[in-house]
Design a protein around this nucleic acid. Structure first.
Lengths: 218, 218
DNA sequence: AAAATGAACAATCAATAAATTATTCACTAA
DNA sequence: TTAGTGAATAATTTATTGATTGTTCATTTT
């Protein structure tokens, strides 16, 4: 058990090395086998296929990313507001630097997601859980006024979508993105705070679709 | 002048037809020339290259999309809040239906953007201008409390990024996206409204980067 | 002149063949 | 029994070629 575990780890280590240097497609099973001083066939006793090695690496990468974000929760802060700000900015900075310094990580993630869509869904869910904890704390302490923590978490997460994998959408610099994110957080936080008179603004309801059906085939 | 203008329009019409039916790559200049009863060479008296025909079509598409959104501004509404809600949902619905009914439109847009990055920047800017007008109105009437309309517009636009070209990010249904967007707008609108005691929450400032440099090459 | 042509050329694409690679499995070693 | 092998095969990628397409331009038509 422990024996086969270390063998498995050896494969993962070799793969991490090659994937990040040469990329997933240009790394061959034969090369990994060589690195581990074993035959290609033996790799398949530990992984069902090449893609599964990538999945395992990406899974660990995603988990450690959430850990980095979660680490911010351990820092002492004045308020839930500050906690939320710290986490959101940490998220932006972490993914920005990751894509900047190790571009192959993005490539690997895209390959994994295109083969395993569920992977992305679960990664995002883990990330949201961190947000949810902060909102919950803020609600409990009375600092935030939140009618429904679950749906507000989703809203917060959606509103900051642009700042995860920002390089996919824009070629703004990190400084620009930070400035922009600060404005987004200003609006959102004002929206999370209780109004002094205790009467929160009514929720947005989905407007009815009035306009004629557009975009018919030309 | 008018003569060559109608010829140009004939080419655009033929291209619109073929691009939306068979796609940009599978449409040949020879076919367009045939459709217009002219020789391939003559097309080049009106467009510098094939891609420029696509750019012109995409430009018009983008303009008419903004017009659709702007049309919402003409409907009488009770409040700036309602106006903003209508516009944001109209945007989601328009682009959602567009990509659903005419998927080649997305393909064309992506081809144009990859060749002319400026195209996307300008399209987004036009869209933001609509948002900005509403925020400005709301500020003038006192309905919204906004310190800086320009940066708040950018924030609003960024926070709703997910709902433009939503199909690129998720495979949620329109109904799911609408429900989610309603929550996002709830938070944002609460953030835009003036607090009763007149003292708005301080703006978010960019937190200092405390964590050690992460994501060094492995 | 201005508008248009169509053959000529260069660039790109599609189809196929060749080479490489992922995966399996009957087998050997510990 | 468990760990590992490596040749055989299936799947994928890469290279090569021929065909198609985008673009130009000397020439013709209006």
């Amino acid at each position: 058990m422990s024996e086969s575990d270390t063998t498995r780890e050896k494969i993962i280590a070799a793969a991490r090395e090659r994937f990040s240097h040469y990329g997933y497609p240009k790394t061959t099973i034969a090369e990994l086998a060589d690195d581990c001083a074993m035959s290609p066939g033996n790799i398949y006793r530990f992984f069902k296929g090449k893609i599964d090695i990538a999945v395992e690496i990406a899974r660990r990468e995603a988990l450690s990313a959430v850990e980095v974000i979660e680490a911010v929760l351990d820092c002492p802060v004045r308020s839930s507001r500050q906690r939320l700000e710290e986490v959101v900015f940490a998220d932006l900075r972490y993914t920005f630097h990751l894509l900047e310094n190790r571009p192959k990580t993005l490539e690997l993630a895209q390959i994994v997601v295109s083969d395993r869509p569920q992977f992305q869904i679960e990664s995002l869910r883990r990330e949201r859980r961190v947000f949810q904890r902060i909102l919950h704390e803020g609600q409990a302490s009375g600092e935030f006024f939140i009618e429904n923590v679950a749906s507000t978490t989703i809203a917060l997460h959606a509103a900051t979508t642009k700042y995860r994998y920002a390089q996919l959408f824009t070629n703004q610099t990190l400084a620009e993105l930070e400035r922009e994110l600060a404005h987004v957080m200003t609006v959102i936080l004002r929206g999370l705070m209780p109004s002094k008179d205790g009467k929160p603004l009514a929720e947005t309801t989905i407007p009815s679709e009035e306009t004629a059906p557009l975009a018919s085939a030309s």
